[in-house]
Design a protein around this nucleic acid. Sequence first.
DNA 1: CACTCTACCTGTGCGC
DNA 2: TGCGCACAGGTAGAGT
Length: 275
Amino acid sequence: MPELPEVESIIRTLRNSSPALIGRHIKAVDVLWSGAVSGCYSSDLQAALEGSVFVSLGRHGKFLILELEAKNRSGKQFLIIHLRMTGRLSLVPLNQAVDRHTRLVFLLDRGLALRFDDPRKFGRLWLVNDPAEVTASLGPDALSVSYNEFAERFAVHRRQLKPLLLDQSFLAGIGNIYADESLFRSKLHPLTISSDLSPDEVRRLHCVIIAVLEEAVAVNGANIDGVFKAGEFVVNVYGREGYPCPVCRSPVVKIRVAQRGTHICPQCQSMPEKL
DNA sequence: CACTCTACCTGTGCGC
DNA sequence: TGCGCACAGGTAGAGT
């Protein structure tokens, strides 16, 4: 399931592809499942995008932001894509057959197609004039947030750490896997109330989040048995219930926090005193 | 404000 | 072998 590092990895792959996505014209858009298109009708999306050219690629948190220039219109357009859990975006040969999970195909020049596949149909796509129409409610990107901004935003909350890290309006880009990994490496229990952290612990958490995400980005994301196999980043606790903690050898335990499967080392991540 | 629950989906993997 | 079912995940929106 793509979180920030996996989305970043997709962007890098698309940037380095040859022929590149940047500069490609959209000749047509096939919408195989219209539910994937949010905020407008798929016919509007098709009409607005035909003839457009990709000019840049970026992201905010887990949202991909593809900038386009329309042929006959002034002003920019942005295709915003959220892959949610099972979405995939790939550049393929134009003649490659769709499979049963293909939801959208952008037919391009130079014999290419940009394809959106998504078995679980959770992924969504928007066409807007300003990315903020979709991303305005997001907090700062987790990969580049400064310590000052992190600490400032942290200070206004009194919440359990795990749901706080997962809250995209607090910090954009962290999902279940990297939340568990960041809390493990920070030696913090997911149920700890954020306002109970010492300034040193807040600083440590910020450092760990950035370090974890940077490490994962450097190797193209996580590699989790049976779940996500894009990259080489190996997690310590997520999905490893019953396996020994790499630090102290205590068995990793799975608990439920905010309705989410949560993995901890009960030894290294001690329970907050109040519980 | 903080939290919980539900809905959205479908492939996987379990128990029987 | 095959059936049924719980479960996984991110987010929005409603409710406590």
